[in-house]
Amino acid sequence: MANVSMTVNGRSVSGQCEDRTLLVQFIRENLGLTGTHVGCDTSQCGACVVHVDGKAVKSCTMLAAQADGSEVVTIEGLASGGELHPVQAAFREHHGLQCGFCTPGMIMSAVDMIQRHGGRLDEKTVRQELEGNICRCTGYHNIVKAVLDAASKMGDGTKVAAE
């Protein structure tokens, strides 16, 4: 049994779980944050993407114990004070979601992508950067549009990662 503590969406949480517990299980089952989804068993679909210490990772491919002491942000923690994150707003505005199942992972990946690339994103880059996120509904067209729009709106405010 592992005792894990971490900060999730700004709140300190701790809990006991088997050492084999995946971060996604801890988030969904121990914390009841069911916005993070599981869409595959081979670490390929990205439905489970969360941010750990500021980086997008697949929470199905990390143990809860590995995240002990980390800062975790899930889809539930993205909007602040009732105001949607610009990426969330852009997904709605551009119809970047249909069934919504891939959406939390898509949005978390998009936020991470924009943080790394800032305003320099173009369509080709967005498509390549989405390699780890599978959507079966949208054909990606509107997801790409949403990410580009959010990136341009966030452009000035975003720090471009140091080279």
Partner: peptide, 17 residues
């Protein structure tokens, strides 16, 4: 714009699992 999106983009969708 879709009404249902509000819950999906904030992680509040409720699926069977």
């Amino acid at each position: 714009a879709r009404k249902e999106d509000k819950r999906f983009i904030t992680g509040k969708g409720r699926y069977t699992d």
